[in-house]
Structure formats: structure tokens, C-alpha cells
Simulated assay, not measured.
Amino acid sequence: MVLHPMKKIFPICAAALLALSGCETVVDVDTPPHTPRLALNYTLSNQPATPEYRDFFEIRDLFVSGSQGVLETRQLAGRKDATVQLFDESGQMVEQFRSRARSGYGYYGQDSLYGYYMPTRNFVGVPGRTYTLRASAAGLEPVEATLTMPAVPSIERAEYVGLSTTNNGYSSYSGRLTVSVTDNAASADYYLAYARVLDRAGRYWGEVYRDYNAPGSDGPDINLGRFQLSSADGIYSQYPFSDAGGNGQRLSFAADVQLQYRGSYDPYSPNPTIPDPAFVEVVVSSITPETYRFYQSLLRYYDTDGNPFAEPAPLHSNVRSGYGLFGGASDAVYRIAL
């Protein structure tokens, strides 16, 4: 997405005159210059990228595009011609990626969405090791980013207490999820917490969502300084937590949640066959400082979107000569039988 250098005209209304109707002053504003660069988003994990893992953690998939100017209005288009490789600290290539379009039927009229990539070697990151991601595409400067995988966190306890069940064409279960993590006092640590549901065979059954309609719920407001449950199905639903101010203490949260089935079934059948959920699986991720800063800046950017009086909320990036995030997440998994 390329920004063309030109002048734009914007209506600007003085704050003192907002109460007056028809208040408008036309000011010529120079469009900020923009040099197109590669932009990417990828999170390396200590878990193998199995189909079940990728179904749940789509937000960690590699996505590559070209950058665009702040005033560009075209829909962001991914690059399917990029070369992306992962190297370990010795300089050996340990992973390479291939383009794989996602189904995009009904999404802005597109049949497929390009820019997504999948690993070809199913490489797993090792906590404590350092990795470098390098990417290139025709017409743009190559980029790279480096990280050190954090230590695996320690889940002290996780509990799910079921409260109710709904089955009106789909399966939905309500309950209370409690999670406690033992924080390492010797280091500054950053976390994300997720939960998903598995069937008896260990296959992905559905996701766990916060239930904002539950009696006594604390409402839809999100506190960015609170350890809480994130949702793996949306990039704007990531709520990273820093142990600053509580380093070495037990970290915990309790939330009213819903277990929502995400598999396939015949909606026209009078008695659709839906497998029973068997496990709630809690995933607590230790993330790199750069991953924490990226998602924090993303939430601030999202919260200020459309507000002309908000302070600037630039997105954090750790990609040299480009934009985006090369993130790292070391996951601890705690399985609760239902």
C-alpha cells in the first residue's frame, strides 16, 4: 500500500467554537512522506504447529505485506511472493515458510486472502535460545528481527467449575475459570493467558470466552494492567500482562466464561450431532518484552482509532528496516478434565 505525495484538505474546527453550527476552517496539510517497506507478524512458539495448534492460534501465523501510508484507504493486501527464513544463533537455517492463501469468500469480495505463510519444517523454538527471522520480497528492502525465547512459565493451579449448558442448535457451556501462576522473582516477565476446549480424542472442540453477561460480571471494560484471559481468535483481543509491581508474587485471575463449540455440524438436522467437550486446556504464555510492547501499543491504537483528539498511538515494531512483530511465546499447558 503506497502513499502518494500530495496535499490533502481537512476540515478543522477550533475546540472553543465546537458549539457553534457551521464552524469550519480549511487548512492545507502536507501529506507525510512514506517509503514502502516490508511488514510482517509472526510468533515463534515452543509448541509444534500441528493442525489443532494452528486452528487455535491463527494470530501466531506468519503474515507478510507491504506497508502503506497513514492516509491510504485501500484494503491491506498481503504479499505472496516473500522469502522468509528462520535462523538459530549459530546461523543455521532451521525453518522456512511457504505461501498459503486463506479462504476469503465474502471478505471484501475476495475468494482468497494472500500474505499468509506456513512453516515447512515444523520447527519448535527452545526457551533460552536466540533466533533471527529474515524476510525479503521484490521491490522492498529486506528485513530481519531477533529474539531470545523466554522461559516456560509455571501454572500452579487451574480449575473450571461448570454452571449451565445450552443446546439450541449449537453447544454452549457456562462456568467459572480460575488460574494461578507462580511468577519468577529473578526476572521481569510478561504473560498472555488463553483457554480452549478439547474433545475426548484431544482434538480442538472450541474456544473459551469471557462471559460479560454473567451475573456479577465486572462488565466489558478491559483493564490493561490486569492479568486476564485473552482470546486467540483476534489480534485486538490480546491482553498482555507485566509482573512489574508484583515480581515474584502469585499471579491469578478468575473469570466467568463460556465454552463455545467451533466444529462442523448439520444446522438443518433436527438433532445435530455435536461431540461432548472433554477437557478445558489452559495455556499460559511467557512472551518476549517486544511481544508485550507490540500488543500494548496495538490496544492503545485500537482504543484511539477515530478520535481526532487522542494522543498519537504509534505501533511498536522490532523489525529492522521494516514494520511489525517477530514475537516469541513459551507456553505452559494445564489440562482440566470435565
Rank of each mutant, 00 (worst) to 15 (best):
M1W: 07
H4I: 13
P5K: 10
K8W: 11
F10V: 14
A16K: 10
L17Q: 12
L18C: 05
L20Q: 10
E24Y: 07
V29Y: 14
V29W: 12
P32H: 09
P32Q: 07
P33M: 09
H34K: 07
P36A: 07
Y42I: 01
T43Y: 01
L44D: 05
A49S: 10
T50E: 04
F56T: 14
R60Q: 04
F63K: 13
S65D: 03
V70W: 09
E72N: 15
Q75S: 14
G78Y: 00
K80C: 05
G91R: 08
E95Y: 02
G106L: 01
Q110L: 15
S112M: 02
Y117W: 04
T120W: 00
R121T: 12
R121S: 14
V126L: 08
A135R: 00
A138C: 02
L140Y: 14
E141H: 07
T146H: 12
T148Q: 13
M149P: 04
M149C: 04
V152G: 00
V152H: 01
I155S: 01
Y160G: 00
Y160N: 03
G162H: 15
G162D: 06
S164P: 01
Y170R: 06
S174N: 15
D183R: 11
A185F: 03
A193T: 09
V197M: 07
V197I: 14
R200S: 15
Y209S: 01
D211N: 13
Y212A: 14
N213R: 13
P215T: 12
S217V: 08
G219Q: 08
L224N: 08
G225Q: 13
L229I: 10
I235A: 05
I235G: 06
A244F: 06
G246T: 13
Q260C: 02
D266H: 03
P270K: 02
A278W: 03
E281D: 11
E281P: 08
V282S: 04
S286K: 03
E290W: 01
Y295S: 06
L299S: 14
R300T: 08
Y301I: 00
Y302C: 01
T304P: 00
T304F: 00
N307K: 01
E311P: 00
P314D: 06
H316E: 07
S321I: 00
G322R: 03
G324T: 03
G324C: 06
G327T: 10
A329F: 10
Y334L: 09
Y334N: 12
A337K: 15
A337Q: 14
